[in-house]
Write a protein that binds this DNA or RNA. Structure first.
Lengths: 241, 241
DNA sequence: CGATCCTTTGAGCGAACTCAACTCGGGTGG
DNA sequence: CCACCCGAGTTGAGTTCGCTCAAAGGATCG
């Protein structure tokens, strides 16, 4: 239990400060752990879940299906994230949540979250902050798909995932696991699979990054940031504020 | 004072239920009203505001400037909205907030908001919900700029603004004030001004909507929704849940 | 009654799309 | 053990949606 909730504590400490008391409260949350394969829906559009999902291992993403059969991915989630914490106060899911890879997730009942929030109002503010950072990421994604060229969009996603993983200690040097297919990258950036492929080749030939066998290695962080016009302010890490 | 805060009460009642007690608490918030012309920045990227802004009259939008001089608008805001409520828990602004038109706005100190949240934990949850709905709107905008064709993107924005205005009683029949320039619509949808113009002509010739002299009239709501692939679920109105 | 901002139109260009085929690697079963 | 299959990545060619550049009409206002 505690071992799993450590992931959440670490994530929260990357975006805020927790008192010892709050830390204990988080570690005391009830959690049910579940192993899932790739491409498993955790919640679907229209669901009314009574629990939220803490990522323990693997990659998840939020998405909406389009009438024409297309799919728009709206965020990637890594261990420590609670991708559907919002369902605590929004009854009906307006999007789906799926595993991109084999994953381990923990479910925390809404009742327990509500209880902890009312018992620790300042901790509630910090969970609120977490959802506000998710919102800030959505805003940045609007910029990404709305105004950047194809290679920049992809570079931006890579910068973001790298920093999110680094914040919870899941990078090794300049590289990290990134088992996301080019089709998924396309759904996240509003590009066709073919164009994603050619754009990645561009990033590769510019010696910025390599992306193969489910692993991403950043050869030139400054160059990648520049290509992405990436500014990490929107991630609102604690150490930056 | 109370007269101004009525706007906020009405907005909150469109997305949640307020007890009499909570209503009184909201109406008791301190507020400083200010009249602003068009194109006035209220907060800028990098600011650390100590108050949030309640829209009383007019249109506001959130935006980010791009290195190339471009601008991405990430949301439009109408009376009753608190576009920067998030600054309550995110120290540094990662975007700007500007008036699109002559506007009247009220400023509410963060201290007062924090106090009301800790005194009324359930009301705090409802304000949290409000920010979560904003996040849901950002998600839908990712879909909008990421996967829809030009006329659909514009139609979608019109559907959204119409329902948001209707929820606070600011539509008259099938029409509403929409004093947003085509250049701004372009910045919001990731399209060039020229292409916005041609796309609006398409919507017009399809007899869906007219858009002139700062007013939008919807001739065929179902057709417009269809063109936009608009599903209002993401707005999370109280009556729908 | 210019000045200015917004909208509209025309024409050529380019980024990204679609369709289609081929490669490569890992798994599975005969 | 190899043949096959399937999913993911890659490549080529033609097309299209939306862009840029440029300029001409309205509308509104001092």
């Amino acid at each position: 239990m505690t071992r799993h909730l450590d992931r959440l504590v670490r994530k929260l400490e990357s975006i805020t400060r927790l008192t010892e008391d709050e830390k204990q409260a988080v570690l005391g949350l009830p959690i049910t752990v579940k192993e899932l394969g790739a491409d498993q829906d955790i919640v679907r559009e229209g669901d009314r879940p009574s629990q939220s999902c803490l990522v323990l291992e693997g990659f998840l993403f939020l998405y909406k299906m389009l009438p024409d059969g297309g799919r728009q991915i709206m965020s990637f989630h890594v261990p420590g994230d609670i991708p559907d914490l919002q369902s605590l106060h929004l009854t009906v899911m307006d999007h789906g949540l799926t595993t991109a890879t084999q994953s381990s997730v923990g479910f925390i009942p809404h009742d327990a979250l509500r209880a902890i929030c009312h018992a620790h109002p300042v901790l509630a503010d910090k969970l609120w902050r977490d959802t506000l950072i998710d919102a800030a990421i959505f805003r940045e994604w609007i910029v990404n798909v709305g105004s950047r060229e194809a290679p920049s969009r992809i570079a931006h996603v890579l910068c973001e995932v790298f920093l999110k993983l680094q914040a919870v200690g899941l990078t090794s040097g300049n590289s990290f696991e990134f088992p996301i297919t080019q089709a998924e990258i396309g759904d996240a950036t509003g590009l066709s699979t073919v164009h994603v492929n050619r754009s990645i080749q561009k990033l590769r030939s510019d010696k910025l990054v390599s992306l193969e066998k489910g692993r991403c290695t950043i050869w030139d962080w400054d160059g990648l940031k520049r290509a992405a016009t990436f500014d990490p302010t929107y991630l609102h890490f604690a150490k930056a504020e």
